[in-house]
């Protein structure tokens, strides 16, 4: 089966994101004082072939080994089957 997987890599709670802080300040300067915080994450889009029962475990493995750094980052992902037309 073919799947489209979207992986979101985000900062772990408590890890300061210097880019997010800078963007928050810029939004405040633009007058958007209502913005409490900004966090900048990474999104990765994977297309892969896998058996239905192993797609989640495979992507989890990829996240743990490479796509996220577990010391500072969390990850989550969405799996969507690619339907051939």
């Amino acid at each position: 089966m073919t799947y489209d997987v979207t992986v979101y890599v985000t900062w772990k709670e408590g890890v300061l994101d210097p880019q997010g802080t800078a963007v928050t300040e810029s939004l405040h300067k633009l007058g958007y004082g209502e913005v409490e915080s900004v966090s900048i994450s990474r999104m990765l889009q994977l297309r892969l072939e896998a058996a239905p029962e192993e797609v989640e475990s495979k992507v989890t493995e990829m996240c743990e080994k490479l796509l996220a750094n577990p010391v500072i980052e969390d990850y989550r992902f969405e799996v969507e089957e690619v339907v051939s037309t």
């Binding site: 300061l16 994101d17 210097p18 880019q19 800078a22 750094n69 010391v71």
Partner: peptide, 17 residues
């Protein structure tokens, strides 16, 4: 060395970017 797990911790962008 950090990424390979030979040393503990991780690096982020400098505080002031």
């Amino acid at each position: 060395l950090l990424e390979s797990g030979l040393l503990p911790g991780a690096m982020r962008r400098n505080e002031d970017l």
